[in-house]
Write a protein that binds this DNA or RNA. Structure first.
Lengths: 129, 129
DNA sequence: TGACTATTACACGATATCATGTAATGGTAT
DNA sequence: ATACCATTACATGATATCGTGTAATAGTCA
């Protein structure tokens, strides 16, 4: 992953970010605030290119729902599409989301190590008492 | 920033993430999908510790709105609070968000370099035609 | 105690999001 | 042409979110 060494928007700038910048940042993260979109993006990272029905099978959701979310990702240039006969194949277009997803999964696991959640069998033990 | 070298949830695992994992990941990103929260978090990263009225002044919003968002951040253990007389001071509790915010700002700027957006005066040029 | 300040709790209205169902579109094959 | 398949477009209802206003709570100071 490439690092940012010089950035006018770096946190080290010691000045507060503008509402505009915060808004753009929000839009960036907003892409990743849907279970469905995250699973779609993750699948596309793994498999490079998949059509709607492939993705529909993977996430076990209706093709319409998948298509809707893909359309939103296209709007933001996150993914790109290509038609091949009847199928329309999608692939990641903006590598940013790969970095974000990677970091997200990484942080998720670290926090699990530090603050282990209660396991299901423990819950059932409590429920049984 | 610490890197993840071995991770059972790594993208390299070549298996699709579960709905559960995607959900947790979504919750992580959801924290960052509010202009207000992003500005609050950013301010707390810069200044280490600030009370509600400080933050209220910085983001130019009502103390209630600020308090509401801070409460949501407390619920997710993102920030921690400390009372000192009348004021209640908040500080970042979960360093994850610092990494995410940093990467987000970094990616934002890179994408601006690559795909420069239309400037306002250009828009007005078009509007004038 | 009582006045005052800072913060929080809670209900409300406006807005956005998501999955669904139905209908339309684009492409293939007979 | 027409039947068929994959995908998209669009409207809908359920749900979540955000900022606001009002009221309650916690602390300070006289």
């Amino acid at each position: 992953m490439k690092r940012c060494r010089t950035s006018s928007n770096s946190i080290k700038d010691q000045k507060f970010i503008s509402p505009d910048t915060a808004g753009e940042l929000m839009n960036l993260f907003k892409v990743l605030t849907s279970e469905t979109r995250l699973r779609l993006i993750h699948a596309l990272i793994l498999k490079e290119e998949l059509c709607v029905s492939d993705l529909s099978n993977i996430v076990e959701m209706k093709p319409q729902a998948v298509s809707n979310q893909l359309q939103r990702l296209v709007d933001k240039d996150i993914v790109a599409s290509r038609r091949e006969g009847n199928q329309i194949y999608y692939k990641i277009n903006d590598p940013c989301v790969i970095n974000l997803l990677e970091l997200g999964l990484c942080l998720l696991e670290e926090s699990k190590k530090k603050r282990p959640r209660m396991e299901k069998f423990e819950v059932s033990k409590i429920m049984a008492t």
